[in-house]
Amino acid sequence: MKRVIGSLLSSVLVFSVSTAHSETQLIDTHIHYSHDAWNVTPPKKAIEILRTAGLQKAFVSSSSDEGTQLLYAKAPDLIVPVLRPYRKRGEISTWLHDESVIPMLENLLAKNTYAGIGEFHVYGDNANLPVIRRVVELAAQYQIFLHLHGDSDAVEYVFDQDPSAKILWAHSGFDDTYTIARMLEKHPNLSADLAFRNEHASNGKVDADWRELFLAYPDRIMVGTDTFSPERWYYIIDHADWSREWLTDLPTDVAEKIAYKNALALSNWALK
C-alpha cells in the first residue's frame, strides 16, 4: 500500500515538474554537447536538464560527434542529432581548410542518423572552399539541412552552389532585422535561429522591429540556447523560461510556430 501511495506521489511530483515548464511547448535548435561537457554533465544529467526545461526536442551537435551519439542513445525521442564537422573544440576556423573532415563526415553519415550538418562556421567566400562544397553536396545527398554560423555572404554562396539547400542560419548571422528579412525573402529555404540574441525581447516584451520580422516570416524563425561552454548546459532551463516569457507577447499562432512548430517541421522533413 505504502509503495502504491509512494508511486502515486512520485507520479504527481514528476507531473508537476514537467507541467511547470510545459505551458508553451518548446524546441531548442542550438545545443552542443562537446567533449568537455561529458564528465561534468554526464548524459543522464544532460537529458534530465533538457526534460526539466520542458523541451519537446533538442537539436544537438557536438565536438566530437560522440557527444551527440551519447545523448541520442539515451533519448532518441528527445534528441535531433546534427553532425558537427569538428573533432574537438578549437576547429572553428581551421576545419574548412582540412580535407580530412570530408571522409569523417561521409563515414558518420553512412553509419548514423542525422537531421543536419552543423553548426559550422564559415564567412564570406570561404563558403566556396572545397570542404564546404562537399558538405553542401552531402546535405543534398542525404536530404538534411545545414546549420550555418556565418555572414549573409556565406549563406548566399551556399545557395549559389545549391539553390535547393535547406539552411538554418545560426544566430541569424548576428545581423539586423532588415538583413534577416531580406535574406528570408530572397531564399525560401532559409530559416533563422535566434540563439544568443537579445535584441528581439526585453522584460518579456518583443521589440517592434523584430515583431515585424516575426509576423512577416512566422514559419521561418526558431529558438536556441547555444551551449558553447559546459556550464551553459544549465542555461538551457533559464533560456527556456526566458523564451516562453517573450513568446507570450506574440499572437499565439506565431508564438507556437517559433516556439516549436517550425523546428518540428524541419526535423520531420530531415528525419522522414
Binding site: F196, N198, S202, N203, D226, Y235, D238, H239
Partner: peptide, 9 residues
Amino acid sequence: LQLLHRNWG
C-alpha cells in the same frame, strides 16, 4: 539594466 544571455557566468 538589461538581462542578457552573456550575463550567464
